[in-house]
Every structure is written in structure tokens, then in C-alpha cells.
Amino acid sequence: MDVPVEAFLFLLLLVTAVQVARLRDLYAASMMTAIFSLLSAGLFVLMDAVDVAFTEAAVGAGVATVLSLGALSLTGSREAKKRGQIFPFVVVTLTGAALIYGTLDMPHYGDANAVIHRHLAPDFIRGSAELEIPNVVTTVLASYRGYDTFGESFVVFTAVLGVILMLGTGKGAKP
């Protein structure tokens, strides 16, 4: 019975997320975001997504935190003041209610008869065995959905290009 573990992790995630939204010291908020990523990696392991957990732990607690701390050292780490919170709260509540209404006819969590588990996934698992690669995620990532991953590498390339254009320090840079 692993439901209590997941509930406990969700509770911790909720506490850290609320702290990220609430804290006005932005260094502390960045560290809270890193903790959020690390806790969510634990949850991903419980959901059998070991590859996702691995990536999230390396990215969220490693690189992303360093980048946001670097940006904070350039922009100032103190949030000046708050503004009215009633309107955002109403918007968020309405959006959340709409999304929850949308989930009501979804198959239950862990339901093996859900449509998505019945069609493509078994083919991919059998295909991975034919290719003699135990990790199905690698097979799907590099081979079956190669075009997708190719596009994602290109997105990383484009984002880096954008950062170079925004922050580049070559000749004639720095306005």
C-alpha cells in the first residue's frame, strides 16, 4: 500500500510550493524551488518514471538553481511589495476548478485498462526487446520518436542562441 507515501510527498510538495509563492527573500525562494524539484524526483520514482526522476534531480536541484541564483545576483534578491491578492486567487481557483472538472471522466490512477496503456505502449515494449535494448525509454526516445528528440535538441540549441544574443559579451556588447 504505497498511497500514504505519495500523499506525504504531495503534502511536502504543497508546503514548498506555497513557500516559493510566499517568501519575499528570493534566494530562499530559489532554494525552495530546488527542494521542490528534488521532492518531485522522489515522487517520479514512486510513479515508475526512473528516467524522469533522474533528469529532474540533475536539472532542478543542479543546473536550474545555479542559473536562478546567478540571475538573482544581477537583479536584486528582495521583492519590494505585494499587490492585491484577491483577484489572482479568484482566477486561480476558477482555473483549478475547471481543470479538476476536466479530469472527472479520466481513467483512474494506475488503471491498467486505460486506453493509453493498451495500444502503442505494448508495441514499443515488444519492439525494444527485438532491438535488444532493455531500457524502453531509450528505445522510444532515440529510435521510435527520433524526430521528436531531434526537435528537442534543436530547441535547446535555439534557446542557447537566444541567451547568447541577450547576454553575449563579445565585441561591442553590453549596452
Binding site: V63, V66, L67, G70, A71, S73, L74, T138, A142, G146, T149, F150, S153, V156, F157, A159, V160, V163, I164, L167, G168, T169
Partner: peptide, 25 residues
């Protein structure tokens, strides 16, 4: 091959972004 391409793109990309932020600082 393609996994090596991903390694190159991601490792260099993240390192380059870190360098750019650090130079700016």
C-alpha cells in the same frame, strides 16, 4: 550516435549558459 549528439548539445548548452550568466555578473 544520436545520444552522443544529445550529450554534446545539452552539456555544452548548459555550460555556455552558465558562462554567460557568470560573465555578466
Amino acid at each position: 550516435f544520436v545520444e552522443f549528439g544529445v550529450l554534446m548539445a545539452v552539456a555544452s548548452g548548459m555550460t555556455l549558459i552558465f558562462y554567460l550568466f557568470a560573465e555578466r555578473g
